[in-house]
Amino acid sequence: MTTTPETRPGVEQDLTDRFGALARTFVAELEAQGRLVEAGGAAALEQLRARFDGSRPDSAYQSAVDVIVDDCGFPQPVATRVATALNRRGLLGPGGEPEPQHDPAPGPDPLTPPARGSIVLPRARREQPQPPETAPVLTVVPVPDQAPTIRPAAAQPRGEEPPAAWSQAQALAVTVAARLQTQHADRLEVLQIEAADERVTVVIRAASLADWEYWLDAIDAPLNVPTRRAGWAQVAAGRIDGVDVHLTAHEVPRLLEEAEQASAESFYLWGRVYDLTRPLVDQRGLVWLYLGQRQEGGMPLLFQRSTDGPLYPLGSIVMGNGPLTALPEPPAEPVAAAAAVQEAGGEQR
């Protein structure tokens, strides 16, 4: 486009109008931001700010804000938030000076463009763990007929309330369980003895019927205690110092069946198998014999050896004199054994 003398004044006027509008807009924006002052006003503001910063205890805070705004180019609100976060963490230090670091970490590398404006915090020093102190050795002094002062761990109920919240019945159950553990600690058949709420549970794996009968006496089960089979275990209940004690004996049903099959004539009564073909001795040392007579209900009738006394039911003898035990068979006499060998056509050695 060619500019002629006639059109030049019009173009200049158009440019003047446009630049004037742009200048007015720029000035309005400066006034809105509070950055427009009169001549000499900037120096006055700078002196006022220096005097105000010198009187404030947190001049380091304002210095940090100015550095973030002037050097990093971040807006005033962002700079204020960053400086506030640093001040809360104590990184600016009191009195406008940074806090001394006892073990400063290596300084960061020069900031790269992606890291501009990032906050670099010192890494806290990790303290070395101290070795645990050696626990004192506790010595348990046994006291006859008393539970130990240090209760066995298995006697304490699992998953129950702390000891402070136990009732009197629960505390008594724990005491009975601890006593059973202490008195029968050498029994190899024991699997578990512990207090369960207000009762005690005993679990064993019997190797013989003697183990089963031992624990019937240990839990103070009545002589006529009812027992029942639960799978491959036999269960019974006793009572010690007012606390119910429940006994679970594994393998006992099998042992009872084997004992019944091994005898030509046996009788099962209150958890025990009695071999009626052999002499039976009670807890007082009296020997009883069975001659094949029974009551109408099937209860065997026995009489005392070396007497002409009457017949007594087996149940009455057990309740009066305790459980009976079969006497061991006497060994064969040498003369009778030699005769038996000669009759068989053999030779005695």
Rank of each mutant, 00 (worst) to 15 (best):
G10T: 03
V11N: 07
V11Q: 11
F19Q: 13
A21S: 15
E31P: 07
Q33I: 01
G34Y: 15
E38Y: 05
G40H: 06
G40E: 07
A42I: 11
R56L: 12
V82F: 08
V82I: 15
L92V: 01
L92A: 01
G96R: 01
E97R: 13
P98T: 10
H102I: 02
P104M: 10
P110R: 13
T112A: 12
P114Q: 06
A115P: 00
I119M: 11
R123W: 05
P132G: 03
P142Y: 11
I150C: 01
P152H: 07
A178W: 08
Q183R: 10
H184S: 09
H184E: 10
D186M: 10
R187E: 08
L188P: 07
Q192C: 07
D211V: 00
D220L: 13
N224P: 06
P226L: 10
A230R: 08
R239G: 10
D241R: 07
H250G: 11
P253L: 03
R254Y: 05
L256K: 07
E258L: 10
Y268C: 15
R272K: 14
R284Y: 11
G285I: 03
Q295W: 03
G298M: 03
F303K: 14
R305G: 00
S316F: 05
S316L: 01
P331N: 13
E333K: 11
V341A: 15
E347S: 09
